[in-house]
Amino acid sequence: MISLRVKKKVQNTFLFLFAFLSTIIAIIPLFSIIFEVIKNGIEAINLDFFIQLPGPLGESIGGIANAIQGTLILVTLASIIGVPIGVITGIYLYEYGKEKKSTLISFSVDLLYDLPSIVVGIFVYITVVSPMRSFSALAGALALAIVMIPIIAKTTEESLTLVPPTISEAGIALGIPKWKNIVFIVLNSAKNGVLNGIVLAVARITGETAPLIMTCLGSNFWFSGMDKPINSLTLLIWRYAMQPYPSAVKKAWGAAFLLLLVALALNLLVKSGGERK
């Protein structure tokens, strides 16, 4: 009897230790990355970092202002295109997803969701960059929007599915027309989940690099039009981190630090949104 108990206890302790150690092993690389980014990133941060152009490669002056500007423009434009399409697609999947005629759409969304983003980049390169004969901000935003759409569509559909059917029914029983009921009653009841999905999608595209390499290329100058190349934080990291010049590498660390902060902020937003409801 007693020995059985002891055995159980030893077993439990062992399991606990094992789980604890595994967690530590998993966390160490994560924290060392974060630590490196913070340590190296903070050194790069000063006022010029935020307001100056990068300047000639190799010189230790200048900042990454055009990359910040570029990321803001690209993410905003991508969201303007991607959020409505994503939400509407999600609503469609919720309403008709189980019917045969929408198999194609739900299949496409799943496929798009799993598609490596560089493929999206190639697609936009072929359909937009090539015909326009120029890398452009527009092409970059389109590529990011395409990355966003399946994420938002899926989270929207899931959030809508979680709304109890009795709520939709109560709306219909008030004589509310079908589409108004879906938007103002059901979607409204699911709005926290939908908003979380949008924030997650924004976080995701803020960190995307591959589709931008093939669409907006990067630039050393300020934004100069939708049809011109544009810089972004990720493109700047991609190009500068590989340079032999310490000053360039430092700017890349600074940009990485900034992206880390943005990711952290967006994740906190989702968390607090989750607690609100």
Partner: peptide
């Protein structure tokens, strides 16, 4: 049917207030 449902209201067994409102 929309007019019918406005004229003939329905109250359900479990109260279902719209939760986000």
């Amino acid at each position: 049917p929309l007019v019918v449902r406005r004229k003939i209201g329905m109250v359900f067994q479990k109260p279902v207030p719209f939760p986000s409102m």
